[in-house]
Design a binder for these strands. Structure first.
Lengths: 227, 227
DNA sequence: TCACTAAATTTTGAATTCATAATGCAAGTC
DNA sequence: GACTTGCATTATGAATTCAAAATTTAGTGA
């Protein structure tokens, strides 16, 4: 949870960027909302200089939109943005899976499989928030196990931009079942270090996730992720 | 060519970021070189505030490394960075090709094919700098024709980070021939809007490019791209 | 001559100040 | 009553100032 208070860190702009990022992802700063610099400065107890540096960084990351002489506002995530992001995420995760199947340490694989087992338990208990948490851990774990920090960072960055207001996502039972089945395949392929299969199933998983999300968006739901 | 002088633009930090990016890519700011803020301010005739904002952005993009209380330096491109970047670029370009084959307008395809024809002429004339310029235009054209601005932006960003000191790259005649042959395939697949094939050949093209670059780096060459 | 210490200088990090563009409001006009 | 027009207020963009950290330099002694 993001909390306002005095900041202790090497560089203020870095800490501020992190906090603003969290506030946007957690929807504490609403989509489209105008960002008043002075207010945020008061909130964090810093001057405008490091805050503005952080804002520039977040603008570059796509979280914030800058309008000359009118300042900053939280970037609005359009359907087009989502449609653009998902094929990229599918490509990146597919690549991460291929690399991870070859490069991951046994310990990394064990950790991911352990998360997978716990996620299955959460699934069986219909514990959606637990499921989401472990789901994210698995995907990030694969990214990390790819041994490619640039890839991991890009994946994280895209993921952060897309996942806003994730908390109470409603998902169809069908899609949830399908997602869990896909994750079983993912775990299998990873356990066997089957690179082509892991790559393929991750791409399919992400593609199906997008399809499910598209369907929900068409029904007028707020943007929030699917399993 | 980058030139220091009075700046005309909406926001200084944006213009400064662009100029610094160019200076790094063109190797006017050398890899690893420490960045003295005051010197650059004098060069551009601006104060440190917008310059520092630009530096933060470029740090986020990977062009610059920040060290707390020691300021900024041009990021050093390691072999590991290159090895990390290329599979990602291959995945992204492959995706861009797949999307472009379906989404590109006829005019966009015609423009790319025209660049391709001119590139073949440059190849036959052994005009390497002309070849490079058109090669880049083709790859960026495909990215743009994908109709996915996020993808295009990510591709550009990675590309910019990797391509430093590109000017006089020495390439083996064999590799150059191979690259040109691959580009013929690319042009064919694009002309036929054959998405799977374009996707495949672009991935192969990028992979071969990395292999050629690896070989040259192993021989102790400075980092510079291959066709 | 070299190693070490301490002052002076430089440089970075952040706050403050200043200038300018945008917004809101009220008076005036049609 | 709705629409301008000009002024006051507010917010942003950028320069300047101040403080702290790092680097350099000068000096001291072995």
């Amino acid at each position: 949870m993001t909390q306002a208070g005095p900041i202790v860190r090497a560089s203020l702009h870095d800490e501020l960027a992190m906090r603003l990022r969290s506030m946007i992802v957690e929807d504490r700063l609403k989509s489209g909302e105008h960002i008043n610099e002075r207010d945020l400065c008061d909130l964090f107890g810093v001057s405008r200089t490091p805050l503005r540096e952080a804002i520039k960084v977040l603008a570059r990351e796509g979280y914030i939109t800058l309008t000359p002489n009118r300042g900053a506002s939280v970037a609005v995530l359009t359907d087009a943005d989502l449609n653009d992001a998902f094929p990229i995420m599918a490509a990146l995760e597919s690549l991460a899976g291929e690399l991870a199947a070859r490069a991951a340490s046994d310990a990394q694989i064990a950790a991911i499989l352990s998360d997978h087992a716990r996620m299955r338990t959460a699934f069986e208990a219909r514990d959606m928030s637990g499921y989401f948490r472990l789901n994210e851990a698995i995907h990030l774990g694969i990214a990390s196990a790819s041994g490619n920090p640039t890839l991991e960072q890009m994946q994280r960055s895209l993921d952060g931009r897309v996942r806003r207001g994730r908390f109470q996502a409603n998902v169809s039972a069908d899609r949830w079942n399908q997602a869990m089945a896909e994750h079983e395949e993912i775990a299998e392929a990873l356990a066997e270090r089957d690179a082509p299969r892991l790559s393929e199933v991750l791409r399919r998983h992400l593609t199906n996730k997008l399809a499910a999300l598209r369907e929900r968006l068409a029904k007028g739901a707020v943007a929030s992720p699917c399993p």
